[in-house]
């Protein structure tokens, strides 16, 4: 987008209507999820959307330090989204960037509607999201990973939250945009939702869309989210429900 416009813009959709990595417009990248990947954390997950790899860890509900940061009627969510210094092409300074500060807030607010914080007053639930490798869609993969980590920690939730970014590239609305599509495309729209309840918890748009394109993009995002949500449930079922037989 904007900044990259000066560079030669590659063709993002070929003659067959396929994308730079060979996907159809409504196709997700290969997605891989694993829960319980860390020993010390109460809950953890590693989520991969293609070459975007995100690790999430959850600690809590636990006693807050300092104590004055707690709330009398519910748990406080604390969320940090961060990119490892070598997760990007150019080294990312480990100091928190304005982007990371904003995304920590946006991701926290994507998870808040799901967590039953009222069950744990005066405690904190800490969510750490580390981007291991960035290739587009890190915040939405982060939300998907964090929701799995919360579930893995046994924290009661109204529903799981899953996220995906849709975009407009060469005039076409596409699902799960990668880094090249984000950089050279016309719009990037990250969305997260609780599909079981039809609730949208994260919505951003970076770019320009007509109102009609927006409607199409939101529908496509919700379809993609539903598929990711089914994978989340499958992964959790695999870890926790299989032994019951």
């Amino acid at each position: 987008m904007g900044v990259a416009a000066e560079k030669e813009k590659p063709k993002l959709i070929d003659e067959k209507g396929l994308r730079v990595d060979g996907r159809r417009p409504d196709e997700l990248r290969p997605i891989d999820m694993e829960v319980g990947v860390l020993k010390n954390a109460d809950g953890s997950a590693l989520v991969k959307y293609g070459n975007t790899w995100v690790l999430a860890a959850v600690y809590g509900p636990r006693e807050a330090v300092p104590k004055h940061m707690t709330l009398p009627d519910r748990a406080v969510l604390r969320c940090r989204y961060r990119m490892l210094s070598f997760s990007t092409h150019e080294r990312k300074s480990p100091a928190p960037s304005r982007r990371e500060i904003e995304l920590s807030k946006v991701i926290r607010e994507a998870l808040e509607p799901a967590v039953l914080t009222e069950l744990y007053p005066r405690t904190t639930i800490d969510i750490f999201i580390e981007v291991l490798n960035a290739h587009g869609g890190t915040r939405t993969a982060g939300v998907t990973a964090a929701a799995l980590a919360l579930a893995d920690a046994g924290i009661p939730m109204r529903d799981l939250v899953a996220g995906v970014a849709v975009g407009k590239v060469d005039g076409i609305i596409v699902l799960d945009i990668n880094e090249n599509e984000d950089m050279y495309g016309e719009a990037d729209m990250p969305v997260a939702a609780m599909p079981g309840l039809g609730r949208i918890t994260l919505l951003q748009l970076n770019g320009v869309l007509t109102p009609e394109e927006f409607r199409v993009a939101l529908k496509l995002a919700l379809q993609g989210i539903k598929r990711i949500y089914d994978m989340q449930k499958e992964v959790l079922r695999h870890k926790y429900a299989v032994v019951e037989e």
Partner: peptide, 26 residues
Amino acid sequence: TEEGLIAGLQKAGLDHLTETEIEKAI
């Protein structure tokens, strides 16, 4: 934009929005 295009979105807050609410907001 002045032409009636959507050039940015940002949801914030502790609660969710439904698809219908988003339609109405737009």
